[in-house]
Each structure stands twice: as C-alpha cells, then as structure tokens.
Design a protein around this nucleic acid. Structure first.
Lengths: 205, 205
DNA sequence: CCTACCGATCGGTAGG
DNA sequence: CCTACCGATCGGTAGG
C-alpha cells in the first residue's frame, strides 16, 4: 500500500481511462505513435504496463479512440450550427476556422496525432475516418457554395479554397502553442480576415 | 551471377545511393520512418539489408540527408532570386508558393517525411534544420514586409500571414497527388490569387 | 491491477 | 556487396 503507485489518486474506471488517453496523446505527440512505448504511458499514469490492457484491449485502440473523438467533435459542432440555423455563410466559415484552431487549446497533442498517425490506424477504422474527413470537407465546401450563392463570397473553385482554409487552420499544429501572444480564436479571426479581404492592395490588382 | 539480385542493373555508387534515397523516401512516406524497416528498403532496391550499410552509415543518415536536401533546395531557390534581383514582392511571393507546392511533383514522399519526421532527427541535426526553417520563414516575412513598404500588400501581422501561406502550401502534402486535374503550379497560382484578392465580396465587407 | 514472461521485429556488426 | 548473427525493444498474454 505504500509503493510508488499508491501515491496516485484512486480513480474510477472512467477517470483512469481519461487519464490514460491524455497521457497517451501527449506521448504520441512528442515521440510519435510507434516510438511511444506502452511502458512509458503506464509509467506516466502510475500503473504497470500490463494493467493498461485492463482498460484498453490494445495500443491501436488508444489511437482509434483519439481519431474518433476528434473528427466527431468537429463534425458535430458544425452539424449543430446547421441544425440551429440562423447563421450566414460568413459566420459559419469563421466558426469552422475557430473550431479547428481551438483544438490546439482544448485537445493538446491530439491534432498532431490526428494528422500524422492516420495511416497507422487499422484498415477498417481508417476507411471509416476517411469517410468522415470527406464529409467534413464537404461541409466546408457547402458553406463556401452557399456564400457564393448569396453573393457573400467570390470563389472560383470551392474545393481548392476549402483545402486552402484547412491548410491554414490545420497547419497551426506545427507552430501554435497555447499561452502565446494570441489565443486560438484570435489566430482564427486573423486568418479569416486575411482570407476574406485578401492582402493585395486593390489599386495594383 | 544468376541470382535474383543480379537482375538489377549494375550501378555506380552514386547511382545506387540515389536509388536508395528514392526508395527510402517512398517507404518513409507510406509507412512512416519507424515502421519502414531497412530490410524493406533493401528488398526494393534489390540488395541485402547489410549492404545498405556500405552506402549509408545508419538509418538516421537517410533521414538526415532528406531533410538537408529539402530545406537547402527551397532556401537556395529563394536566395538565388534575391541575388538576381529584379523581382517585385508579388512575383517573389508567387515564386515561393510555387516552389513549395512543386516539391510534391519533384520530390515525391519527401515532403511528408520533412514535416512528419522532423522529431526523429538526431539532436544536433534537428537544431541545424530548425535554424534553416526559421531562416526560410524569415525570408517569406521579408517578402511580405517589402510588399507592405512598397504599397503592394496590406498585412497587419506579417509573421501570422507567412504562417498562413506556409499552411496553405505545405498542407498540399496531405491531399495533392501528381497527375490530378491541376498541376502544382496551378494550385500555387490559385492559392496566390485567393490570398491576394480575398474571397469576400467587396460590397459586404 | 500486478508479476513474470514470450515471440517477433529490427537496427546494426563481424568477417569476408 | 553477402552470410550469419546479436542485443535490445516492445506489444501483448498467462495467471492470479
């Protein structure tokens, strides 16, 4: 009862699972999925490696859950807005961009894992996540299409523009660190303003 | 003389090294650095695993060379333009964006390796590459600053705008595949036009 | 949630 | 450029 592990708080199964996920996300982020041993996750959680298998059936399962959580979160956020109604294309675009960049604050580590460890997913799950990714891209394209239809946006190729938007926002996982000068919402807003207004000085167009 | 390997062409050391690099880049791209065994590289090259160590001292060395080649290539391209002179900020911006997206065509596999396997680099090399990356970012910021000074661009925060540009262009490694509808130069040009002109319909700003 | 342990993989080396 | 081989790591299991 007085060993190293008992120093950790007693936790419910759900709490323990959440802690394991958090630690795993951090380690997958910093070391990479294949280079983050289950042993290291266990140590940082304060239990033995074999005990991880009481909570999760495999290392893959950790990766799978991270992917499902992330993609469901952003899809649901946008779907919720559409269901509610009342938002115009500009507001919807800003909301999507803010969702994406904010993941850097709400889910540290997860974004890198989501983008860089997609191919390590088991085949069936990978297909499922790929489908959801496509669906999310389409949601963004829909917003752009609607903006064009309502004379709010000028967009020649909505899919390419959507990929540009995703590029700006998702790329933040490479450089954005919470606690910096600007928070996620400010960065999203800056990108949104840049995209809407452009950086070209009109008189030289 | 009639074994499986002799089917491969006899090559000079330099040719063999180039082939190993090409195969390694493909495998690091599709499987990931840690999950691409030297055995698989050797097989695809048509030699034995141990023979790879005749050409390269370690697996790390392959990764290091890929990083050095990539970053030097884009830095040199921009530096060359600056040395030549005569290009305005708009032309320079488009040239940088085209350089980046074009790497998807000229160096298949390398771009993903460059962005996703930076942390696997040995410490000293990682610091060196990080310095060069900073330098490249600064080159882009310089172009934006100059554009502002010459009344060609309107940019509130050049560093953030530079990160948006890098996001759009670098993110292509996630979706762009050579041989599609648009080639790299067209994608870069589209992103450039989108960034310069913006997607907002002026009358609603 | 633990102790004990295995099977497989893999980067790299010896010696030619 | 090859054959033969080793040391270390790691995901996962048995059994409690």
């Amino acid at each position: 009862m007085a060993d190293a592990r008992s120093a950790g708080l007693r936790m419910s199964g759900e709490q323990r699972k959440a802690l394991i996920m958090k630690v795993a996300a951090e380690l997958f982020d910093t070391r990479g999925y294949s280079d983050a041993p289950m042993e290291a996750i266990a140590q940082q959680v304060g239990i033995r490696k074999a005990s991880l298998y009481y909570y999760f059936p495999s290392k893959d399962a950790l990766l799978v859950q991270m992917h499902q959580e992330m993609i469901d979160l952003i899809i649901d956020a946008q779907q919720h807005r559409l269901d509610e109604g009342g938002m115009g294309p500009r507001e919807l675009l800003l909301a999507i961009m803010t969702d994406l960049v904010s993941l850097m604050e709400t889910h540290p580590g997860h974004l890198r894992v989501f983008f860089e460890h997609f191919r390590e997913l088991p085949d069936t799950v990978r297909d499922e996540i790929a489908g959801k990714r496509d669906r999310y891209l389409q949601m963004l394209v829909d917003v752009l299409d609607r903006g064009v239809a309502e004379d709010e946006f000028r967009v020649a190729d909505p899919r390419l523009t959507a990929l540009a938007v995703l590029g700006m926002c998702n790329w933040t996982y490479q450089w954005f660190r919470p606690g910096g000068e600007r928070d996620a919402a400010e960065v999203a807003r800056y990108f949104y303003d840049t995209l809407l207004g452009g950086i070209g000085d009109g008189q030289h167009a």
